[in-house]
Amino acid sequence: MTSVQKQDLRLFDDHSVLSQSLFRPENHHALFVTHKLGTSPAWLINALLETHILGAPLTLNESQASAINTANRRLANAVTRSTKNTAIASWVHNSEFFHSALGKLKIDPSRYKVHDYLSDFVLKYHGKTGQKILKNLVQELTAEPKPDFLILEQPELLLHLLNISSDELHLDFINQLTKIIPLIVIVSYTEAYDNPGTDTSERISANMIEQIRFSNGCVFKSIAVLGIRPLKTGRAKDVTGTLTITRGGASLSHLPIEVAENEYLFQTQKDTTKLFYR
């Protein structure tokens, strides 16, 4: 496996990770990243952030040293890109987590905004009405300068933290954001997802209903679904898991690009992730 050909990450058939056509005016899109127990999406989130800030997922497939080199070069002549506003909101990690990950590439924290919804979120909002909080959050997330790229890490926790339904979360939060922000990435932990289908007489618990409705809603909303999961066969020395890129429920027929469906194997070790084919 040491001699395997490394593969570049691409999500769209114009060989891009985040195609420029997605950022055309009046366009709003969503991507959905699902992950399961054993394969945390940290590397993919970083890769997407790097792509938006620096133009390419530099840490993928590269040793850290060479990634830093490229990053420095790109940062030096990235004046034109400074119009971009990148933001990430996380309910499981604090800002330190992202600063340390992106700091390795010497990306200045001023080039992106982290909304830390882990720290003191409960103390701040516990027991208050969900609707108002959602409104607040939308305002915070879309405040000037408006981000054109926003990653939401585990917004499904809001279901429980605010004790709201999946429909409320979709309508009053995610839809409100997609209306304003050109590209949103929803990162969600789907380990618990278990949908027996409508045919079964099995009674589905209320929590599961919300989880299914939330996840399904995200799939329908998204132009592409990026699924990360471990190998079915379990742990392997040279493979961490698979990344499957598939079309989502939303169509891309209005744009000249298509989702490049693909299945990568990846290996995450220390701070680098390598992509390759089976």
Binding site: Y193, N195, V219, G227, T246, G249, E261, N262
Partner: peptide, 16 residues
Amino acid sequence: LESQLQRLEIPRGLNS
């Protein structure tokens, strides 16, 4: 396909 979708593991070739 059904068993995969049950766990929200989306294979390629859908929504085609």
